[in-house]
Design a protein around this nucleic acid. Structure first.
Lengths: 213, 213
DNA sequence: GTCTATAGCTTGATAGAC
DNA sequence: GTCTATCAAGCTATAGAC
């Protein structure tokens, strides 16, 4: 993998993904990206229409795959429970686990992309538009499943519960190292297995508390 | 309030806070800030050492007050429970409610500052350092209180639970409008009262699920 | 405290040879 | 597909008059 040199377009996308994730869209110049991709500046404009187009292609490159594997995970859960109702934990696990597994299994490939998602989700400028465009169809599908598992929930409670889930998940993606400082080294931002062990349980309890009143 | 013109330094800080919150540190130029502050570019460098210094002063201007009112809220809870243990909800409420109240009572004054916090918390570059510097002393105080209310908790569980809390809270601060889209208008990003009603309950259930196993 | 003027650099983007 | 060369605009920051 380190021996075969990738096509230029892929190298540009890789470099852009890493740098946008670290410093945001405005914090990075096309020159810096092309320097890291080890290619000339003008090639950015041969392969992409503009800096913004490059950014959009970075986002698009991986988002469909992510939504596919999460939909598949949900369908597997529903398959397993054709006679009874799936638990809230299982549904939430189908939403979070596929992503956390990718991150744990090939950190180098996925960490930058997820860091980018974390920043966009919390950006007043881009968050509302981009997150809705890329993820809301899938999220609506999950919310429907949760509605069945929590039949007494008011509609607003489900959406706010998902909002809390989303914030918890994307802060995990950011891997800022803050929990390392706060815990004096007991916890590590990059310890995705520790999150996978705890997040579905934590969030399912929250959903149940809010959506069963 | 609209009649008396504020001192230049304050006008610069207000403009910088709003623009940094919207587009991030790198997404805004000193010229844009000074144009919104209705003052000459050179005055930025009379009042502040550099663009980065201006950013730091924006952060510092309000952070101490926030930590004060939250510490006070926690002490009031402990005062009320000198004989028994305070509940997890009450402790979490003392952490989140003072901020949500400010945001609900004077949205114009506080929304930009909280949006800035949301972005920083999720920034791989600044999140670890800045959030720890400004908030970890207070957070450690709260975690100690939670440890007493949840005596069976492993230490890592408490820190990860706080991590989930932090993500849920700061995504609320971002006010991106995504929940408006997702819910088809049932929920609104700016409806802070709706969050205040739900967040302590949701999070307390998560803490209890994770820290009582 | 506030202004004009400007230095010195980096930016996104393009034209045109090979 | 890839390079050299370049442009116009915008950037942070400062010097110096008032």
């Amino acid at each position: 993998m380190a021996h075969t040199r990738q096509p230029t377009r892929e190298r540009i996308l890789d470099a852009a993904e890493a740098l946008f994730a670290q410093r945001g869209f405005e914090g990075v110049s096309v020159r810096q990206i092309m320097s890291q991709a080890d290619a000339d500046v003008s090639l950015a404009y041969y392969h992409f229409k503009s800096k913004r187009d490059l950014f959009d292609q970075v986002m698009l490159r991986k988002v469909e795959y992510l939504n596919e594997i999460r939909l598949q995970a949900l369908e597997e859960v529903e398959e397993r429970h054709r006679d009874d109702e799936p638990s809230v934990e299982e549904i939430i696990g189908a939403f979070t686990r596929p992503l956390l597994q990718l991150l744990a299994d090939d950190h180098e490939k996925w960490s930058h992309y997820f860091q980018l998602i974390a920043q966009i989700n919390n950006s007043p400028e881009m968050g509302g538009e981009l997150m809705s465009r890329y993820f809301d169809p899938l999220v609506s599908r999950f919310i429907d499943a949760l509605k069945k598992a929590l039949p007494d929930s008011g509609p607003a409670d489900l959406y706010w519960s998902y909002h809390f889930l989303s914030g918890a998940l994307t802060l995990t993606f950011a891997e800022t190292g803050r929990i390392d400082n706060l815990s004096g080294g007991v916890c590590k931002s990059t310890d995705i297995a520790a999150v996978d062990e705890r997040m579905p349980e934590f969030l399912a309890a929250g959903f149940r508390a809010l959506c069963s009143r």
